[in-house]
């Protein structure tokens, strides 16, 4: 089962950033969120794993069903939600005082895993899955800041995968990277959807077209149009969507 968003609203203080959004995000597919800067893509994404509310003054109203269960239900602990729904950020943010190994293991340790052998196994699997193992297997104990930007971002993806989430959210994961690193991450996204449901924010239209199965076009905190990526890019129903993807504004 995927994610079902019902009447979602989000605020920063008085700023109404997300306005009554309804969206069904299918399982094991890649869903792209596109739209001009400041339209609420990141805010929406952060509502999906209850990261929005860690900002002072931020508020959410509405319902988000994951596997049929409302993650905003009154007896739901946001911590367990974030454990199940991983997030990769715009700028790579490895823990700078930790080694490559410890970065990937960080989430496991946070969640109480102590079995060294198991941790080692999962770290290796996660680095494999993030397509980074071959590049770092001989220097796992080295500081993570020695990696290139693209490698750091894949390290962050490995760190996210290590806690075995069902859903992976990515907020413009390649916007700080060079074309080759971007390409690697796009390939990775493509491979990952076999095991994970992926929601990716991008303001690169080509990227959305390349990696996603569905695309939602955001404008001023609202979803203007949501459909298969093919449909959105070949035959958008809304004039504003067409204007945006053809580069006439935004």
């Amino acid at each position: 089962m995927g994610i079902e968003v019902n009447n979602l609203n989000a605020w920063y203080g008085d700023l109404h950033a997300i306005k009554d959004i309804n969206l069904n995000i299918p399982k094991n597919q890649v869903t792209a969120l596109i739209g001009p800067s400041g339209c609420g893509k990141s805010t929406f994404l952060r509502c999906l794993n209850r990261m929005h509310e860690v900002i002072e003054g931020a508020r959410v109203k509405g319902e988000i069903l994951v596997d049929g269960e409302d993650i905003y239900g009154s007896n739901v602990d946001p911590v367990t939600i974030r454990y199940r729904i991983g997030m990769v950020f715009q700028k790579p943010n490895p823990f700078p005082t930790m080694s490559i190994f410890d970065n990937v293991a960080a989430g496991l340790k946070l969640n109480g895993m102590r079995n060294k052998k198991k941790i080692r196994e999962i770290v290796e699997q996660s680095l494999e899955a993030a397509g980074l193992w071959d590049e770092v297997s001989d220097r796992l104990d080295k500081n993570a800041m020695g990696l290139s930007g693209g490698q750091q971002q894949r390290l962050c993806i490995a760190r996210t995968l290590a806690v075995n989430p069902e859903i992976v959210l990515m907020d413009e994961p390649t916007s700080a990277l060079d074309p080759i690193s971007t390409h690697k991450i796009e390939e990775l996204v493509h491979r990952l959807k076999e095991n994970y449901t992926i929601v990716i924010v991008t303001h690169n239209m080509q990227q959305a077209a390349r990696v996603s199965d569905n695309t939602a076009f955001f404008l001023n905190g609202e979803v203007i149009e949501y459909n298969t990526t093919k449909h959105i890019f070949s035959n958008p129903s809304d004039q504003r969507t067409e204007d945006y993807i053809t580069g006439r504004f935004g």
């Binding site: 794993n49 974030r82 823990f95 005082t97 930790m98 962050c156 996210t160």
Partner: peptide
């Protein structure tokens, strides 16, 4: 300490205290 460090810990399922010890204090 950059906010991105706090978010990194939160996104892995850290509680506030775990976030402080993992991200803030080590950084």
């Amino acid at each position: 300490v950059p906010n991105s460090q706090r978010e990194a810990a939160y996104a892995l399922g850290a509680t506030k205290w775990e976030m402080i010890s993992t991200s803030v204090l080590t950084y």
